[in-house]
Write a protein that binds this DNA or RNA. Structure first.
Length: 292
DNA sequence: ATCAGAGCCTGCCAGC
DNA sequence: TGCTGGCAGGCTCTGA
């Protein structure tokens, strides 16, 4: 198994793809040795410096879970380590006998019984590791996040965002509303559901929240499917991580034609983020129903 | 109580 | 060719 988080920004689909690659390589394995190369990359919620046993050294991995963009490694003895990939994080599982590629910015390495290993690399260091006190803290931490993007419903979205005057795009980026949606999939979902990114959250009708939630789930699922197929091509680890951009309807396409109406996609900044939308397909104000 | 903005960090790319 | 400045963005903190 050779797993790579592609060059794209890790959002929910990328993290889920990583999880699916790591789980079979780690679950049931004893962590024989864990090395932290950058001590400031790991934080203990109990305070104090992170030691190898905090990185699960000496423990058997029971599960690799995900909520939103966060990954959790849960050991059989109850130790819990959370990983976030940030902007540029890559978690790779290397099969026994596979020599780790020479690379910079590797902050942590886990050596498993049987010879496999896992490498955490993150050039920009927006990601990190968090040592929790146990599973209860993990559940508490994750309960502060919104429902996972793969399962979000329109009702849940509306409940958590409904009264806000903030732009709907900013609300989608808020992890306490829905967990796992980042800049790319926020734009994609808004385009799919034909909602203008600057609409105030409270101006959306219930049907629009339903359609938005469905678009989020659909977009994320499609991206996971695409990553999976990309990964399969990756066995030889020769080329690029595949044209991940190819599947995006709007993200990164400002100035190019809309796939729906062939009009020109526009770009702007919303909540400090590059935002692309189609002025015709995503009108700012609701079109009045015709002929009524 | 909300929300906007700054700051963190490096890689990449356009422009000189 | 080599430098430089701007941009990319998830998340936390600060201050309005």
């Amino acid at each position: 198994l050779f797993l790579v988080a592609g060059a794209v920004v890790p959002e929910l689909p990328e993290v889920e793809t990583v999880r699916r690659g790591l789980a079979p390589a780690m679950v049931g394995c004893l962590v024989e040795r864990a090395v932290l190369h950058r001590k400031d990359y790991c934080v203990r919620s109990a305070g104090g410096p992170c030691r190898p046993r905090d990185l699960l050294e000496g423990a058997v991995v029971r599960a690799v879970e995900r909520h939103g963009k966060q990954l959790a490694f849960i050991a059989e003895d109850g130790r819990v380590l959370v990983a976030h990939l940030g902007m540029s994080g890559q978690l790779r599982a290397l099969a026994p006998g596979v020599e780790p590629p020479r690379s910079t910015h590797v902050h942590a390495v886990w050596m498993l019984d049987g010879g496999g290993r896992v490498i955490f690399r993150d050039p920009r260091r927006f990601g990190g590791l968090w040592v929790l006190k146990g599973e209860a803290e993990l559940r508490e931490r994750w309960s502060r996040l919104g429902p996972d993007g793969l399962e979000i419903t329109g009702e849940q979205l509306r409940e958590r965002a409904g009264q806000s005057l903030r732009a709907i795009k900013a609300v989608l980026l808020d992890q306490s509303v829905v967990a796992g949606v980042g800049n790319i999939y926020a734009d994609e979902a808004l385009f799919l559901s034909r909602i203008h990114p600057l609409r105030a959250a409270r101006s959306l009708r219930a049907e629009e929240y339903d359609s938005l939630a469905a678009a989020i789930r659909r977009t994320l699922l499609a991206a996971i499917a695409a990553k999976g197929s990309t990964l399969r091509d990756y066995r030889d680890a020769s080329g690029e991580p595949g044209d991940a951009q190819a599947g995006h309807a709007v993200y990164g396409r400002a100035g190019e034609p809309c796939y729906g109406c062939h009009g020109k996609l526009k770009g702007m900044r919303v909540a400090q983020r590059a935002t692309v939308w189609c002025p015709r397909c995503q009108p700012r104000t609701r079109r009045r129903a015709r002929g009524s």
